[in-house]
């Protein structure tokens, strides 16, 4: 094994929203993926964890929200790069 970095592909697989628990083998019929998209965010409740591909310090890396536990986080969504506002 060498330390040669893998070349960047066109697509970076990132987990996206991450369930707090791995899909537990339970008797419920609720599809965990479906349940996830219906998760609600509320003040006073845990921020749903996720993993996303990111551009940072000139390079690409995947970032997880839970990497920053122990720090205050300011998470900012916006409609798109190169937009006017």
């Amino acid at each position: 094994m060498t330390d040669v970095k893998k070349p960047e592909g066109c697509v970076a697989a990132a987990a996206g929203p991450v369930s707090p628990k791995p899909a537990a083998a339970s008797s419920t019929s609720i599809d965990p993926a479906r349940e996830e998209t219906h998760m609600h965010v509320t003040v006073g409740k845990p921020a749903p964890d996720f993993e996303a591909a990111a551009f940072y310090q000139g390079g690409f890396k995947n970032i997880r929200l839970s990497d920053y536990l122990g720090k205050w986080v300011f998470l900012c969504f916006y409609p798109g790069d190169f937009t006017f506002v």
Binding site: V41, G44, P46, D49, L69, V73, C76
Partner: peptide, 12 residues
């Protein structure tokens, strides 16, 4: 435009 302030315990 959604902005979330999350504390060190991961609470919004």
């Amino acid at each position: 435009r959604g902005r979330f302030i999350i504390d060190p315990d991961g609470i919004i």
